[in-house]
Design a protein around this nucleic acid. Structure first.
Lengths: 109, 109
DNA sequence: CCCTATACCTAAGGTATTTATGTATATTAG
DNA sequence: CTAATATACATAAATACCTTAGGTATAGGG
């Protein structure tokens, strides 16, 4: 997979996963995406954590830290604002996919 | 349209258009994309020209300048190397679309 | 006991964008 | 005729996101 194509879609992927699965923690997101895409998408931690913090700072995500034995996990949830913005983000992504499909598979006349 | 999603796919779009339509000039590419996507994708000149020059420097595109009255146009064509690389780029894009679709529209069980 | 997996994080550097600006010719509307 | 818009190229500064590389620490399997 060409990793360049991935650029710009990470935020939407995170929002969509949280929207579908409820609270998730960072590492869980990377693994979920890996499984769903048969390892085609590998979200690096250097991209993921800054993205999560960005979305949190924008008020789209809330966090809750849970202790699991001696470890901790930071669970991320969509805020009200995050839920509202998510529908626009998903629409934008669907529109993007439709249009890129038109270019990649133009109707044969 | 959220322009962030567009990031990273410009090179592939250029290569695909040249592959489908033969030689094209920069402005023509922006207009073609605009028409195909009903104005959803607007390729800015600040993104387009550096991209064209980049692809030319990589040896994927050749240019030919033509005079049209007192004006000139720079037509871009795929080189042999560009044709070879294009199939990989198009495959990568198809794979990207498939996987992003899986995330955006997971099967309902 | 060591390697791998789990789980968080940040910093430096690279690179593709946006935004703004510049130049010039052609065409259309008033 | 002249002003605005369209055509057509281009670059530079700023921004934003990503990769790569590193750091810390616990858990579990061989």
């Amino acid at each position: 997979m060409n990793h360049k194509l991935f650029r710009g879609s990470l935020d939407t992927i995170i929002i969509k996963l949280l929207s579908d699965n409820g609270p998730m923690y960072g590492y869980e997101i990377t693994q979920k995406v890996k499984v769903m895409t048969s390892s085609a998408f590998k979200i690096t931690e250097g991209a993921l954590y800054p993205a999560l913090h960005r979305l949190e700072n924008k008020g789209l995500l809330d966090t809750e830290t849970k202790n699991i034995g001696n470890r901790f996990r930071k669970y991320y949830t969509l805020t009200e604002s995050g839920i509202k913005e998510s529908s626009q983000m998903l629409e934008d992504m669907q529109a993007f996919i439709r249009n890129i499909q038109i270019i990649m598979n133009p109707a044969i006349n």
